[in-house]
Amino acid sequence: MNRIKIMKEPSEKKEIPASAGRIAVQVDDLTVAYNYKPVLWDIDLEIPEGVLMAIVGPNGAGKSTLIKSILGILKPIAGSVSIYGKPYDQQRKLVAYVPQKGSVDWDFPTTALDVVMMGTYGSLGWIKRPGQKEKKAALEALEKVGMLPFKSRQISQLSGGQQQRIFLARALVQDASIYFMDEPFQGVDATTEIAIINILKELRKSGKTVIVVHHDLQTVPEYFDWVTFLNVKKIATGPVKDIFNDDNLTKTYGINYKVSIQE
């Protein structure tokens, strides 16, 4: 029996977005396979606009795969995805992405500012170079994540937490409506974790939709208002306060879980 201790949110009332609101991301019958082994199986998922959602599940449950196939990085063998009712290709300017920190070579010869500037490349399109406007946006994003003093640092000289902040800043520059983040709290220090979650909450407040692949079950109720349980199949999705319970955790992780709320 695993026990999860959760600190009860102090007083801040959570605003649960009206489920009658628009659907930001709609996933229909999505099946994805690696080497013809299904990793995601017949996923149906509706993510309402304006939620801060965690995707949780055990290792190998297909959490990153789900994000990657929504973003068109992986090709599904069945099913479809739509962003505000249209395919991803037509809507990609509405979407920003923070990949796993470990997915890139941090010894690449480039600076923090340079990496953040890459966030503007999508709206620039082919060949056009970033100019003053793009640089200004990048500097603002760096400021927001508290990395302005490090803007000319080579990226290998940053700590893990700082690298993650740079990735977040790069997504912020995209100025999107929907943010996808793949384990943004992986290997970061406590200060960075708080800084990142505050930025995410701020994004939600301004009406953005934020979808985060998350590992730490203990912090789910504190950080998020919406949650999706995933283990190859979708187990459950909905508001944290309604569905974050023993039953769903057990179904997802296959071990008995007990959620105990500490007052």
Binding site: V104, D105, L124, I127
Partner: peptide, 22 residues
């Protein structure tokens, strides 16, 4: 010179480049 931006993005983070529509 033409594709500098694209080359750099691709070399550093090919998946990300894909999500940006390249």
């Amino acid at each position: 010179l033409f594709f500098w931006k694209e080359f750099k993005l691709f070399l550093f983070d090919a998946d990300y480049a894909k999500t940006l529509g390249f």
